[in-house]
């Protein structure tokens, strides 16, 4: 017992112990380099394609705003969940956070987007408005009739034998003009984004 007290006193009188006890510094607070923070602008030019806004899973987290002559995405803190999807979706690499762009380049991952045309046959009245209004259809068949019938197979959709047929929804550009002209609201365009790896377009 007596010896252990002496041992402790000796220990406390050691210079290194006193120095550590009085002047020990706490480690600095640093974020690790792999931390994916809020997306920041890399300085590349935004083309206003709005891919970032369309892929964003949170309401009100990102908006592409006009700053004088140029467009630039703006992140709203308090809404953004820092998932990094806008960074991956951007074709111009306007945004970056953490190692997202680096990892994407290394793994060769990309997001591909296509559009699905869905028609509800119960409410569709086969008026052909969507066929006539579609700008892609106009390109493919300039002689499209006002009722939506066409002899051309290259159109996205057409009226054939009193029914609306969707042939090539892979040609759809997602403009949604058909949704606007449909009198019964029975045509719907869905945007489908798929993650890919190693595939080159």
């Amino acid at each position: 017992m007596g010896l252990s007290i002496i041992w402790y006193l000796k220990e406390f009188c050691r210079g290194t112990w006193i120095k550590t006890f009085l002047f020990a510094k706490t480690a600095p607070l640093v974020d690790p380099p792999y931390f994916r923070g809020y997306p920041t602008l890399t300085g590349k030019e935004c083309t206003h394609c709005l891919s970032c806004m369309m892929i964003c899973p949170t309401p009100g987290a990102i908006e592409v705003l006009c700053e004088g002559e140029t467009w630039a995405p703006k992140i709203f803190e308090g809404h953004c969940i820092r998932c990094g999807l806008c960074i991956e979706a951007c074709p111009e690499d306007v945004l970056d956070a953490g190692r997202v762009l680096e990892t994407q380049a290394r793994d060769g991952t990309s997001l591909s987007v296509r559009y699905q045309v869905a028609v509800n046959p119960d409410t569709c009245v086969r008026c052909g408005n969507c066929v006539v209004a579609c700008p892609v259809n106009k390109e493919a068949d300039p002689q499209l009739s006002a009722t939506g019938t066409s002899a051309n197979d290259e159109v996205i959709m057409r009226i054939h034998r009193g029914n609306l047929w969707v042939f090539h929804d892979e040609k759809c550009t997602g403009c949604k003009t058909c949704e606007g002209v449909c009198p019964t609201g029975s045509i719907r365009i869905a945007r489908v984004a798929e993650g890919r790896q190693g595939a080159e377009e």
């Binding site: 607070l29 974020d31 803190e77 308090g78 953004c80 969940i81 820092r82």
Partner: peptide, 18 residues
């Protein structure tokens, strides 16, 4: 004060308090 993030990092929380 607010620490936005979903969720925020522990470092951000400690930094805000400090």
């Amino acid at each position: 004060a607010s620490v936005p993030g979903c969720p925020p990092r522990p470092t951000e929380i400690i930094r805000a308090i400090l």
